[in-house]
Simulated scan of single mutants.
Amino acid sequence: MKKSFYISHFVRNALAPAARIIRPENPKSAEAIQTEDLDGDGKYEIIATYELYGEMYVMILKEERGKWYKLTIKGAGSGIDYMNFADITGKGKKDLLIGWQIGNIWNELDLYTWEKNTMKRIVHGLSYSKVDIFDRLEQKSVALALWSYTTGDVYDIQLVYWDGRKLAHVKDSRDYYTERVVPYYEQKVKDMPKSAFYWYYLADAQINGGTPKDALKSIVKGMALNEENPSKGEFLALRKKAKRNLIQ
């Protein structure tokens, strides 16, 4: 408790009097003031998110040889949707992910890594509605899932990883779809079993997750509802896709 109070007091003294400390909306475990070793030297930096005159900022306080110095990152939008730490670049230290709130359902993600005594932005303005960090176990690396809202609680999902120079698309998405996406749509059809819409997207997720037999069952249930959206033609096209995956 004393340490937490000291850090909070220390952060407030480093900010302008008019600054207002704010907590990122996501993940739910995020705090307005956090500590993390960003440069891999074994010592924790202090990271705080705040608003000043309507602008969004992240402040990083680093101690070196008994002295503290401050780094400031200025963001976009009207809030801070997301802040997290993960070794995205695979260099054995935590990188900083910041999601700036642009609208009600849209955000922009920036990725920073520690380089040459400062935070270097290596990815800027990735559009997303929800962001998820996951492990690529076989590759022993960390990747990102960017969920982008389309309509009716349905999302377009992009899986990306750092290839050493830039973000690239993950080629094998089966594990992520099985563990995260399929359960999401299973809950949707459980909540609304008479919605062909969600049966369609559950089937699509099951195909991407490598379970085309399950997808065919979902397609049968969705088509039996005889709704106009998705159309019969769309369901039949999805069924062809599932059958192609059966023989691969």
Score class of each variant (00 low, 15 high):
residue 27 P to R: 11
residue 28 K to T: 12
residue 29 S to K: 15
residue 30 A to S: 15
residue 30 A to M: 07
residue 31 E to D: 14
residue 31 E to K: 15
residue 33 I to S: 04
residue 33 I to G: 09
residue 34 Q to N: 13
residue 34 Q to T: 13
residue 35 T to L: 12
residue 37 D to K: 07
residue 39 D to Q: 05
residue 40 G to P: 14
residue 40 G to C: 15
residue 41 D to P: 02
residue 41 D to W: 03
residue 41 D to V: 00
residue 42 G to E: 09
residue 42 G to F: 05
residue 42 G to H: 09
residue 42 G to K: 11
residue 43 K to Y: 15
residue 44 Y to P: 05
residue 44 Y to M: 14
residue 45 E to C: 01
residue 46 I to F: 07
residue 46 I to S: 04
residue 48 A to V: 02
residue 48 A to D: 01
residue 49 T to W: 01
residue 50 Y to F: 14
residue 51 E to D: 12
residue 51 E to Q: 14
residue 53 Y to F: 08
residue 53 Y to T: 01
residue 54 G to T: 02
residue 54 G to W: 00
residue 55 E to G: 08
residue 56 M to G: 06
residue 57 Y to P: 02
residue 57 Y to S: 03
residue 58 V to Y: 08
residue 60 I to Q: 03
residue 62 K to A: 02
residue 64 E to G: 09
residue 65 R to Y: 12
residue 65 R to M: 13
residue 65 R to S: 13
residue 66 G to V: 02
residue 66 G to M: 09
residue 67 K to L: 11
residue 67 K to E: 13
residue 69 Y to E: 08
residue 70 K to Y: 08
residue 71 L to V: 02
residue 72 T to P: 03
residue 72 T to L: 15
residue 74 K to E: 10
residue 74 K to I: 06
residue 74 K to S: 08
residue 74 K to F: 00
residue 75 G to I: 09
residue 79 G to S: 14
residue 79 G to R: 10
residue 81 D to S: 12
residue 82 Y to F: 15
residue 84 N to A: 13
residue 85 F to M: 01
residue 85 F to R: 06
residue 85 F to Y: 14
residue 86 A to P: 04
residue 86 A to Y: 07
residue 88 I to H: 09
residue 90 G to A: 10
residue 90 G to K: 05
residue 92 G to H: 10
residue 93 K to A: 06
residue 94 K to R: 13
residue 94 K to F: 04
